[in-house]
């Protein structure tokens, strides 16, 4: 029973209620960091860590947090974990930290995390909350990696810096520039929404 419930949480975070293409949350960084697979992977891992840990913390503190100031408390919890990630990246992966620039700090305003804290962690015990955080984070990372895979492949002819395209390949420079990000994510949402459940979907998907 417990196992199947964990499974259900995972599946819903990864596909059924995927934060990016179902709920349209966290779009900013989904567009900004996806021109290289490596940056995207680090960003995805950072987000999984922050979402999971803040969900855990919010859930553990849920009985002693006054309802009226809970937003402030949640923001502070999230910001603390982001600072940890930022310091770690600066120390161990300075190149990537520089490439990601302000987008590491912007994890704080990534609505996925706040959304999960509000919608799930506030009403559930720590263990499922942690799982829910990991699942949502993985859903986000999955979309980002897919988008990044195509952008890097078409824009540079490489994947993780390894050349895949044949010699005569002309790079689609537009793919690594801003418009390519919009087209790719728009296309991804189109494909993803063509499959999967339609029920319960409002005619205007965005919030």
């Amino acid at each position: 029973m417990a196992k199947s419930k964990s499974m259900a949480i995972f599946v819903s975070g990864l596909w059924k209620e995927n934060p990016v293409f179902r709920q349209i949350l966290g779009i900013c960084s989904a567009l900004a960091v996806t021109n290289l697979m490596m940056n995207t992977l680090i960003m995805g891992l950072s987000l999984i860590f922050v979402t999971a840990m803040s969900n855990l913390t919010v859930s553990a503190l849920r009985s002693i947090t006054p309802v009226r100031i809970r937003m402030m408390v949640q923001t502070l919890i999230i910001a603390s974990y982001v600072i940890i990630v930022d310091i770690l990246l600066k120390a161990h992966l300075p190149d990537i930290s520089e490439a990601l620039g302000p987008y590491v700090g912007l994890i704080i305003t990534n609505c996925i995390i706040m959304g999960r804290c509000e919608a799930f962690a506030r009403h559930n015990t720590p263990w499922p909350s942690l799982l829910d955080g990991v699942a949502s984070g993985c859903g986000y990372a999955f979309v980002l990696l897919t988008v990044a895979f195509f952008r890097e492949l078409l824009g540079f002819g490489t994947v993780f810096g390894v050349r895949l395209m044949p010699g005569g390949w002309t790079n689609w420079t537009i793919m690594v520039m801003a418009p390519g990000a919009f087209f790719m994510l728009g296309g991804f949402i189109w494909v993803a929404r063509s499959f999967g459940p339609r029920d319960g979907e409002k005619p205007e998907g965005a919030r």
């Binding site: 929404r193 005619p203 965005a206």
Partner: peptide, 23 residues
């Protein structure tokens, strides 16, 4: 607009075209 593209999908693609113009 094709059904799965409604809302955010098409908005992103229009934003892409706008970004193209701003280039």
């Amino acid at each position: 607009v094709p059904r799965p593209l409604e809302g955010p999908g098409i908005t992103l693609i229009i934003a892409g075209l706008m970004a193209l113009a701003f280039i």
